[in-house]
Design a binder for these strands. Structure first.
Lengths: 210, 210
DNA sequence: TAGATTGTTAATCGATTAACAATC
DNA sequence: TAGATTGTTAATCGATTAACAATC
């Protein structure tokens, strides 16, 4: 696999994957980059260029085998085999994430859930018992979980992160609106809901002809 | 205001805004682009370039007045005065959004909430009563709401969108994993949680040295 | 005035698009 | 073979970075 793939390419792959999964479920066996592009509002060249970073997946004159391409894109993204993740913080957002179907569909299983709030510990959400944060290092280390989802209040985010790092987590998906300090070997993905709403608000104003 | 601002610039403005709000609340009066950049892990030139699209906000040799810059960035984004929004779909994600503090902080108030599910209609979430979708056109049109947040299942998203458009909504923040068809004058912002997780999963694999 | 920092013009870098050869 | 569609090389476009003049 090549060293430096453009970030925009990486962020389009999940779109391809989902579209392919949908095509597969509706019984489509073969798809051209042109057709895929129509469905996604992305040019066919862009799609072929993106895929070309990783290999040759199509048949000239024919197109792509839907099932096979889906498998291979999933493999590129590390979504080809079940991956257990830890969820920390079971406020409203945490509970929404715990119940989000999209994860399971891509092979991500929330294997453990933690919260500091004693009134939440012991409750069952989405079929899982909430554990106390005290047990996080032990449990995460023991189960060998790599990815943690962080949906705690901003003021607690760095503290929880330090614990997660100590527990051996190597990727953190952070919904708290703070930049986390982590060692170099830990990947952080910052999710930032308000950006979406503010950007939308800007384009709304612009559309008005402002 | 200039016509064509780079999209990346627009998406950084909310980060500036939040950082400035935080500085203000900690009593910082003046900040340089260098300092702001350190806090956000963005270069100072990038920040100055971004701001330059909209005008001159700083004082050479001094820096930026935190309160004044915050006000002006908020104005650019249309977050300088309260904006009412409609929330459609009160599943787990919808309820999380209804309770999300970040919106209020930026002047967005969820003024009305709708759901199809009769067992949800009438319930109170985050201090608001859930209304039936049947009343959506009337209520939205009557209150003059511009922005709708869509957190309904994928299969219902287009149907609800058509109603929202009929009700006069001009911007839709869509959490359903489908591309919406809307008339040209309606802005759509596609939010896509799974992209974040899959991208993280990719970079985790890469980090491994794969 | 000297030091600091902005705003802007020019150079570089990276991503998208266009053109086309390869091949099913 | 002719038509379709991929994969790739070259050209264009757009965003970031570097350099620097303006000015507090």
């Amino acid at each position: 696999m090549v060293g430096n793939i453009p970030r925009p390419t990486i962020e389009r792959l999940p779109l391809y994957l989902r579209c392919l999964a949908r095509l597969k479920s509706t019984g489509v066996d073969v798809v051209s980059s042109e057709e895929l592009g129509k469905l996604l509002a992305i040019t066919s060249v862009q799609i072929r260029k993106d895929l070309a970073f990783f290999g040759e997946f199509g048949r000239r004159g024919i197109g792509y085998d839907v099932a096979s391409l889906a498998r291979q894109v999933a493999a590129i993204l590390g979504a080809d085999q079940p991956q257990r993740i830890a969820l920390v913080g079971l406020g409203h957002l945490g509970q929404a994430l715990a119940n989000y179907e999209g994860f399971r569909e891509h092979g991500f299983n929330i294997a453990v859930m933690f919260d500091v709030d004693p009134s939440k510990v012991g409750l069952t959400v989405a079929g899982q018992k909430i554990l106390p944060v005290d047990r996080m290092v032990d449990v995460v280390r023991h189960t060998g979980i790599d990815i943690a989802v962080l949906s705690v209040p901003a003021h607690a985010a760095q503290r929880v992160t330090d614990v997660l790092v100590r527990a051996g987590v190597r990727a953190i998906w952070n919904f708290a609106p703070v930049r986390l300090n982590v060692p170099e070997h830990v990947e952080v993905r910052q999710e930032n809901l308000i950006v979406g709403l503010l950007a939308l608000s800007y384009y709304l104003k612009e559309g008005k002809g402002g």
